[in-house]
């Protein structure tokens, strides 16, 4: 097998890996502050693509405006989901909360199907589709966009957690919600903003991935589950783990599609995930 093929597989793997990493980060951000898996994350991805589509074609915005508009839209939607769908819940049993998010996710998907229909749609890439040549492998501009914007998002997220007051507040709520409330932090609002942050990450993943896949109201489901798998692989709750897990899962998937069997690429990815969990039950970087 030639070197250029390997390089091509690696590019593809890194692209999908970056998307999984963004989604995984969204899962981790919510889990760290609120302590449960938020399956609505899956639909934030589809919603990002949908809003990008509407901003481009219904509002007629240019790409540099439409992209942030879509992400802001998902952020607001995520905050509404937390405020209206999760905060009124009367239980703190994790399983009940997880299923509450699954119910909300079904509702959101229904709303999206109602608004945008169930047909496949196409979103244009961020800029051009003329591939660049690199050591015999083709590199699409969208791949560069995915990698760059993901890297920017990760760095911003780390900076946000380490250096801003809101990030500090989120870490405080994550460490001990009661103590955080005692020292005067508005825990409810911090949780809502955490959801917004997760929504922004999911929305970014959505606007980046839908030009590569296609856009449909349920496009986020499989992507989102792989993002969850990536978060678990890296160690649930660990941000570097989420990035490592995402990239690892993406590369594993394309390599097994390329060298083993494209029909069984997901089987390979999940079998490796299971094996890793059997050997390291807490994930790669989990505590």
């Amino acid at each position: 097998m030639a070197f250029s093929d390997l390089l091509q597989f690696l590019f593809a793997g890194l692209t999908s890996g970056a998307i999984y990493a963004l989604i995984a980060l969204g899962f981790c951000v919510v889990h760290n502050t609120m302590g449960f898996v938020n399956f609505v994350q899956v639909d934030f991805v589809s919603l990002g693509g949908m809003l990008l589509y509407s901003a481009l074609f219904a509002l007629g915005l240019a790409m540099p405006l439409a992209l942030p508009a879509a992400i802001v839209g998902v952020t607001v939607a995520a905050m509404l989901v937390e405020r209206l769908g999760l905060r009124p819940a009367r239980s703190d049993h994790p399983l009940v909360l997880i299923f509450l998010t699954i119910g909300l996710s079904i509702m959101l998907r229904g709303l999206m199907a109602l608004k945008w229909g169930k047909n496949r749609m196409a979103v244009p890439p961020l800029s051009g589709d003329e591939p660049l040549r690199l050591f015999g492998a083709a590199l699409l501009p969208q791949t560069l966009w995915v990698l760059t914007l993901t890297a920017v998002a990760i760095v911003t997220l780390l900076w946000f957690y380490r250096r801003t007051r809101l990030g500090l507040a989120m870490r405080a709520v994550a460490a001990n919600p009661t103590a955080a409330a005692v020292v005067g932090l508005p825990v409810g609002r911090v949780k809502m903003l955490t959801f917004g942050l997760a929504g922004a990450l999911g929305g970014l993943a959505g606007v980046l991935v839908t030009p590569i896949t296609t856009l449909r109201y349920d496009v986020g489901v499989l992507l989102g589950l792989k993002g969850f798998a990536a978060a678990i692989l890296g160690g649930f709750g660990s941000l570097p783990g989420a990035v490592l897990g995402g990239i690892g899962l993406g590369v594993l998937e394309t390599l097994s599609a390329g060298y083993v069997s494209s029909a069984y690429k997901d089987v390979c990815a999940f079998v490796v995930l299971l094996l890793v969990l059997f050997i390291r039950p807490q994930g790669l970087l989990g505590k």
Partner: peptide, 21 residues
């Protein structure tokens, strides 16, 4: 028909929100 998923989700959410046990 077209509200099927929304209703399905809403029932799940309603039960879990008000009768979590």
């Amino acid at each position: 028909e077209s509200y099927k998923e929304i209703v399905h989700g809403a029932i799940l959410v309603g039960v879990l929100m008000f009768l979590p046990q």
